[in-house]
Amino acid sequence: MIVIVDYGLGNLGSIRNMLRKIGYEATVSGEAEDIRSASKLILPGIGAFDSGMRDLNATGVVDILHEKALEEKIPVLGICLGAQLMTKRSDEGKEAGLGWFEAETRRMTFEGIPGRWPLPNIGWRDVKAQNGYSLLDESQGTPRFYFVHSYYMHAQTPEIVSMTSEYGFEFACGLSRGNLHCAQFHPEKSHVFGKRLLQAFAELEA
């Protein structure tokens, strides 16, 4: 069973709707029991890093998440703020992240880059696979996804970068290491491109 981790923030309904559309039932839950029995986890989230991390900590399931992600190694997908929470820290706050990726979350800055770059970066952007990432389907043209963010994930080891996009500069919009995956953009709001990505995740061997 795919469990969408509910810690009070995020497009939980949208993710479940899209999974349902492509034929997968998912449970939305913040309960230890459900998360323990999950075969796959999706960590969603919108809003600020610290309030997200605090809300996640308040559920009391963080230890179980660590266990599922790092020891049991079930497939995990972080989305938007959920992706950033998988890094070690963020310019946006003081709380420690989950630290599953050798990466930190940085504020987008555009010094020395010509043009207007309003933040948040809101809109559809082309996304490229990196390091042979298999969840992103590029066989039917350049995939595009819906982004809403002012911070991005900076990988400290380039081999964990799974996807990149551009807004003023090229940035990592996806990280991947073994069973762990994350995306800065919103697959659940990205039409067929998002369906393909969620489908590929849902089909991963548990």
Binding site: S14, E188, K189, S190
Partner: peptide, 12 residues
């Protein structure tokens, strides 16, 4: 709105 959102696979 719930009915609308459940059909929306785009930003809303």
């Amino acid at each position: 709105l719930k009915d609308i959102a459940s059909e929306c696979f785009m930003p809303l």
